[in-house]
Amino acid sequence: MTSTRIAVLVGSLRADSLNRRLAEGLVAFAPAGVELEIVDGLGELPFYNEDLDGETPPAAAVRLRETVGAADRVLVVTPEYNGTMPAVLNNAIDWLSRPYGAGALVGTPLGVIGATPTPYGGRWAHADVVRSAGVAGATVVEDITVSQSALEVDPLTDPEVQAKLADAVRRLVAHSDAAAA
Score class of each variant (00 low, 15 high):
P57Q: 04
G54S: 05
V77T: 03
D40N: 13
L64Y: 10
V76Y: 01
V39L: 13
L52N: 09
D94W: 00
D94L: 12
T157S: 13
D143I: 03
A92P: 05
V8Q: 08
E50F: 02
A30L: 09
E160C: 01
D53I: 01
I93Q: 06
I93P: 03
G114M: 07
H126M: 10
N82P: 05
I93A: 01
G137P: 05
V106E: 14
G121T: 01
F29T: 09
A115K: 04
E80N: 03
L45H: 04
D16A: 14
E55I: 00
A60Y: 07
G69R: 00
A178F: 15
E55G: 09
Q148I: 03
T118G: 12
A87T: 07
V106M: 15
V34E: 14
D128W: 01
E142P: 07
D40I: 08
A133I: 05
A23Q: 09
E44H: 04
A7I: 07
G107W: 10
D143N: 12
P159K: 13
R63H: 14
G43R: 04
G69E: 09
G43L: 01
P109M: 10
G101C: 15
Y100F: 15
T84H: 02
V140F: 03
A150D: 03
L13P: 06
L151E: 11
V27S: 08
A60G: 06
G111M: 11
A133Q: 04
L75W: 02
P117E: 08
G111S: 11
R171I: 10
E80G: 00
L105V: 12
V141T: 03
P159M: 13
L151F: 00
G122W: 00
T67M: 03
G33D: 12
A181Q: 14
V106C: 15
A180K: 13
L110M: 12
Y48D: 10
E152R: 13
L36C: 10
A163V: 07
V153T: 13
S176D: 11
S3L: 13
G11E: 04
I93S: 05
N19G: 10
S12I: 01
L22Q: 08
A61C: 09
V68L: 06
G43P: 09
V141Q: 06
D72E: 11
P117V: 09
S17P: 07
Y81D: 00
I38T: 11
L75G: 04
D143E: 11
G11K: 05
G101N: 15
G69F: 00
A180Y: 13
A30K: 05
V34Q: 08
F47T: 14
G33I: 12
V62S: 08
P79T: 04
S3G: 13
P109V: 12
E35T: 15
A61W: 00
P119M: 08
V68Y: 04
A127K: 05
V169Y: 09
T84L: 02
L105G: 10
D177A: 14
E35M: 14
D167G: 13
P155S: 07
N49S: 15
S12W: 02
I113A: 02
S12M: 07
A138Y: 01
G137A: 11
R131I: 08
A104P: 12
R14T: 01
R131L: 11
